[in-house]
Simulated scan of single mutants.
Amino acid sequence: MPHAVKFSRYGGPEVLEVVEIAIPRPADGEVLVEVVAAGINPAESAIREGRLSERWVSRFPQGQGSDFAGFVSALGRGVTSFEVNDAVIGHTSRGSHASHLVVPATNLTPKPRRLPWEVAGSLFVVGTTAWAAVNAVGVKAGDVVVVSAAAGGVGCIAAQLARLRGATVIGTASPENFDFLRQLGVIPVAHGPGVVERIRAVTPHGVDAYLDTHGGDNIHTAVELGVSRYRINTIIDWEAIDEYGLNTMADADSEATEVLAKVAHLVAQHKLVVPVSDIFPLERVREAFVELDRGHTRGKIVLGMQPVNYRHQRVQAVDVKEAAVTVGVSTEHPHMDVYENLPPVIGHLPHQAHPHPSDTRRSEPADDPLDRPQDRDRVGLPLG
């Protein structure tokens, strides 16, 4: 039976329930998607706890989740841009934590063939938010940019996008994430008291732009560093936006799917790294949010609808975190694209609706401007 995550009252992860649902039917212009992977995000915790009830009202029982990737299962009348069994990435409003969902066809883009499911399913919120934040402050070549919480989901991508534009990026983080940030070409600085002096020590000529992805004292830090309010952006500190008259991200809903496609292709071409720190099956959604709510996640936590068990599997019922298996790895080594050869962690079991689930012949456009040979080595990719 199809399942979805719902909650019927505000509270912590304990209010989340996995309930049976009927398979939804796509209306005109809509697509039914069988979900393979879905990301979880801090905003979902804030909504579930009622902290954003004035901005986003919940109607119980309430679903949750925005990010997802999966296969097209059925098409509503008038949909010609996709076919059944196409692998897609998409977004929805409070409904992606489910085995099946219906969305407008305009919310979907083909999944690049080389993009892992767990990354594809967690890309929308962090990818589009980071893209908009970098655009909002006009990052350009030669800028010095500070990104707070640079090892987190949005911060990690924003830092890399700024680097692709030719900026020098300073990332605030906890010391255990320094090695990771250095591998991305980001200069790490410890957050907390004294951060202004530590930033000035590594950039004596000043800071041009500041991207806040965490809140707290970051806007005060940016102001103290002398950054123009027109080049300070926050994705979370609404009070600071009003207090300082900050430049906020433009409402880009109409361009969200296009931006998602651009970010997905950059990741598939290994120009962006999106770390996945944990993958939980849907029925363990409470545990996934307990981990997220601790606030120390590197990159993304993902829900997998069909986690794979394979022959001779040696690890059973143990969560191996990305952070745990990379401790002690030297940063001075050649880049190696090896993750494609690891055993799969999320799969898809074929059934009547998907006679050829491995068929991704429509997954990448034939004329992808980001995949042309002459563009593959560019570092100043336009983000706007």
Rank of each mutant, 00 (worst) to 15 (best):
V144F: 07
G384Y: 12
I170D: 03
K262D: 12
R114F: 08
E243L: 14
D237F: 03
G95P: 04
L246Q: 09
D212T: 00
V103S: 00
T172R: 08
R165P: 06
G12S: 11
V320E: 13
A288T: 07
G295R: 15
A250V: 08
P350C: 00
A98N: 05
T213I: 00
T128R: 07
V102A: 09
L370F: 10
V19H: 05
V139I: 00
P175G: 08
H265V: 11
D212I: 02
V126P: 13
I346F: 01
G380I: 08
G216H: 13
L260N: 13
G78F: 10
V267Q: 07
V267Y: 06
A264I: 04
E340S: 15
H91E: 05
G11L: 02
V125L: 14
V144K: 10
V273C: 05
E364P: 00
E364K: 01
T92N: 04
V84G: 01
D237Q: 09
S228W: 06
A37T: 06
I157P: 01
R229M: 05
R94F: 13
V196Q: 10
H205S: 15
G90K: 10
L75M: 03
A209H: 07
I23S: 11
G70M: 13
G142P: 08
R298Y: 01
G215I: 01
E44M: 06
V5A: 02
V263T: 01
T360Q: 10
R94V: 03
A132K: 14
P24C: 04
R361Y: 03
I21P: 00
S363T: 02
